[in-house]
Design a protein around this nucleic acid. Structure first.
Lengths: 143, 143
DNA sequence: TCTTCGAATTAGAATAATTCCAATTATTGC
DNA sequence: GCAATAATTGGAATTATTCTAATTCGAAGA
């Protein structure tokens, strides 16, 4: 399990050659470490420009490929706010997202202890939810 | 208030010249009546082609303009599933959306009696939510 | 009714995020 | 080391949506 400790995220070199059956190529390690490093929900473009610092030859297509690989292997979450560009989040714990309308900043929001979907939604019986996305927008405090 | 009775949705001609301070032009009436008529969460393109049946001269840009006017006046809701094209929904009651992965069909899902956000989310104090979108994906029954 | 003026509509161009493609390069298993 | 497979690359293509500039509409007043 990759550490989510905010104080020390792994450098690309510290990432193992394979995670959860996903072969960690140089580029995937770079991209993953970028997403792990600054947990500010970067867009693919953000990840691209950050990755370029250490790996100037990486291409945007590769960043998209790597993000897609990481997302489909459940190592990173893809976060959408309406029709804005997708963002990427390494926090795998059950949570949703709140965007401060003033600054655009995105905050992770956790569910209260012990709540689950069926508790607050009138889901048709037999429904199997494979994917859930909750996105909030608004203001914080007096801003 | 526009009737949401599933059995009889208003024809464009039946819509008033103004709703909630929004001037209902011929095109807006057409677009609105299309969204009210088939509550299948059509995309802008769907609305465009349906509108063209009665009004062959309407343009796609106008459909986008009209939808945007209707959405920003709170007469229609814009519904997003990840990065798919936006869909439009005339159901203004508090609800969210479930997409059947097999068919792509979108179903309205209502909240259980009396639940509200603060009950299940650990929102930072002072948070004012202006917009909330909950999108589910999955399968229904044995499909 | 005629005129005026702001708003709405239109067609088509522009934009921007993302995906696709074909060629090259890296990696794995033998 | 060699073939087979997978990943990367740059650039082109795609697609939903927005923008632009010109035209048309429609309400309000003369």
């Amino acid at each position: 399990m990759i550490s989510l400790d905010a104080n020390s995220s792994p450098t690309p070199e510290e990432l193992p050659p394979e995670i959860d059956g996903l072969r960690m190529t140089k580029q995937r390690r770079e991209v993953f470490s970028v997403v792990l490093a600054e947990r500010d929900h970067p867009t693919a473009n953000d990840v691209f420009s950050r990755s370029q610092k250490r790996m100037p030859t990486i291409s945007l297509a590769t960043v998209y490929n790597c993000l897609e690989a990481l997302v489909s292997h459940g190592l990173v979450r893809q976060v959408n706010f309406e029709r804005e560009p997708s963002r990427y989040c390494p926090n795998l714990s059950d949570h949703c997202h709140f965007q401060d309308e003033k600054t655009g900043t995105i905050h992770d929001v956790v569910f209260k202890e012990g709540v689950n979907l069926a508790d607050f939604l009138e889901l048709p019986q037999g429904t199997e939810v494979s994917h859930l996305e909750i996105s909030l927008k608004g203001r914080i405090g007096s801003n």
